[in-house]
Every structure is written in structure tokens, then in C-alpha cells.
């Protein structure tokens, strides 16, 4: 066996992936070849370092429960057929957006993979993001008057890095909802709002098709926020919207 052949087989040998015949030949070679012996020593040293010193990052506390809860919620809901064109729209969209929607009669606060993400993706199509485009809350808020049967709370969070982009009327689950659009760097954020059927509910978040959805009920309105920005940033906006900051 030549050193070139041996060199190629040392890794699989140390990984217990080499057949018996090659193993015997290789062991014979390595026993008499200092260079290949050294190759073996270096690979073993690298392995030892990786196994002993590489920091093992344990899952954060509560992660297992959060994941299991998301699974149980998705198991309890009817499945929707995949909508291919929406995925393609999502792929083409250069900007990501966050939608917070308060919807009036949605009875399922958590709807993984469902209409809320569809509405979010739809809004990314050119010209569909806003009906009223203004960073002025005093322009956007009156625009909704007469178009919804509830008052839409509109606030700008530009000082916190979430400038108001505008608003529009949208349909989610066959119901009209108010959608507020915020920006975050190159991302857009949609917020859907409507009247709630239940009392106040705490924030619940889950991921669907790579988007993060946060929903809660507050002051008789149900809010839904959809985004692909990082979770801590999304949580920051949720806190701002809830007036908790």
C-alpha cells in the first residue's frame, strides 16, 4: 500500500467505516510508516479536541415545551393544501414584511401555516402593501374610519426602529381586517387588527413556513403579527404595540 492510498483511508478507518481487508492492509502500513502514523495521530487529536472542548450548547429552558406546544396546536387544526404560487411570490419578494392584524371574528388565535401567513405573503406583491402610504399616524388612523366597524389604534415607532409605512384593508379568513405596515431595515411588517370575540389573551407565537406569527387580544381587539425578522426584534415590536415598553 502506498502512502497516497493509506492517506485516503485513514479517516474512514478511524471512523470504523473501512472493510476488514483494507483495515488489515492499512494497519500494516501505518505501523511501519511514521508519516502515516503521524497523520493518524493528528486526526485523533482533532477528534479529541472536538469531543472534549467544543462547547455543547444545550437547548434553552422551555424550548422543548414551546416546540411540543406548537406541534400539538398544529395537530389540532385542519390542514390546508400547499399553495405553490404563494411560495413563489415569497421567493420573489425582495422585502420581507411583518404584518400585525387584528381580526374581528377569527376564532383560532393560533393558525399555523394558515391564512395569516398567506395574507402576509400576498401583501408583498408589488402595489399590494399599502392602500394609504404615510408615516404619519394622524393620516393613517382617519383613513380607516368608515372602512372598519372598530377604531384602529395606529402608532408610529420610528424612534424604536419600526417606522410606520402605511395601512390597508385586507381579507383574512373571509373577513375584512385592518392591516398596519411597519418597516425594519429592508423588511416590511404587516399588522392585522380586528374585534375579538374573547377577553384579553396573552401573546402566543409560533413559526409557519419560516415566518413568525404572534397573536394576542387586548382591549377588545385581536392582533396578529407576521414577520421573518429575528424573534427578539419581533418581540420588541409586539411589546411596543401592547404599550408594554
Amino acid at each position: 500500500m502506498t502512502c497516497t492510498e493509506a492517506n485516503r483511508l485513514i479517516g474512514p478507518w478511524l471512523d470504523d467505516e473501512l472493510d476488514v481487508r483494507s483495515t488489515v492492509e492499512l494497519e500494516g502500513h501505518v505501523a511501519h510508516c511514521p508519516a502515516c502514523g503521524r497523520e493518524k495521530d493528528e486526526l485523533l487529536a482533532l477528534r479529541e479536541t472536538a469531543r472534549e472542548r467544543l462547547p455543547r450548547v444545550d437547548p434553552p429552558p422551555g424550548l422543548e415545551e414551546r416546540l411540543l406546544r406548537a406541534v400539538r396546536e398544529s395537530a389540532a387544526l385542519p390542514r390546508r393544501p400547499a399553495r405553490r404560487w404563494l411560495r413563489e411570490v415569497a421567493l420573489m419578494a425582495a422585502a420581507a414584511s411583518v404584518a400585525v392584524a387584528a381580526t374581528s371574528t377569527l376564532r383560532r388565535p393560533a393558525d399555523p401555516g394558515g391564512e395569516i401567513v398567506d395574507a402576509h405573503l400576498r401583501s408583498l406583491q408589488a402595489g399590494h402593501l399599502t392602500d394609504v402610504t404615510s408615516s404619519d399616524q394622524h393620516t393613517v388612523k382617519p383613513w380607516f374610519q368608515g372602512k372598519t366597524d372598530f377604531g384602529v389604534p395606529v402608532r408610529d415607532f420610528v424612534a424604536d426602529g419600526f417606522p410606520l409605512v402605511g395601512g390597508r384593508l385586507d381579507m383574512v379568513g373571509g373577513r375584512p381586517v385592518a392591516a398596519l405596515v411597519y418597516g425594519r431595515r429592508q423588511h416590511f411588517i404587516n399588522v392585522f387588527v380586528g374585534t375579538a370575540t374573547d377577553g384579553d389573551q396573552p401573546v402566543r407565537s409560533f413559526s409557519s413556513r419560516g415566518y413568525r406569527v404572534s397573536s394576542w387580544t387586548q382591549g377588545g381587539l385581536e392582533y396578529r403579527l407576521v414577520t421573518d425578522i429575528a424573534a427578539p426584534e419581533a418581540e420588541r415590536l409586539v411589546a411596543l404595540l401592547r404599550g408594554a415598553v
Binding site: 508519516a35 503521524r38 497523520e39 495521530d41 493528528e42 487529536a45 479529541e48 479536541t49 472542548r53
Partner: peptide, 21 residues
């Protein structure tokens, strides 16, 4: 595949700290 007698690389690999890896 260097000189057989000395093997400082093996030692370096074995002693490498977590940050280096």
C-alpha cells in the same frame, strides 16, 4: 506529511482551545 521525529502539530491540535476550534 512532514518529518516523522518531531510532531508539534499533533500537540497543537490536542491542546487547541475551544475558541480556536
Amino acid at each position: 506529511l512532514g518529518t516523522p521525529a518531531e510532531n508539534p502539530e499533533t500537540r497543537l491540535l490536542r491542546m487547541a482551545d475551544a475558541r480556536a476550534l
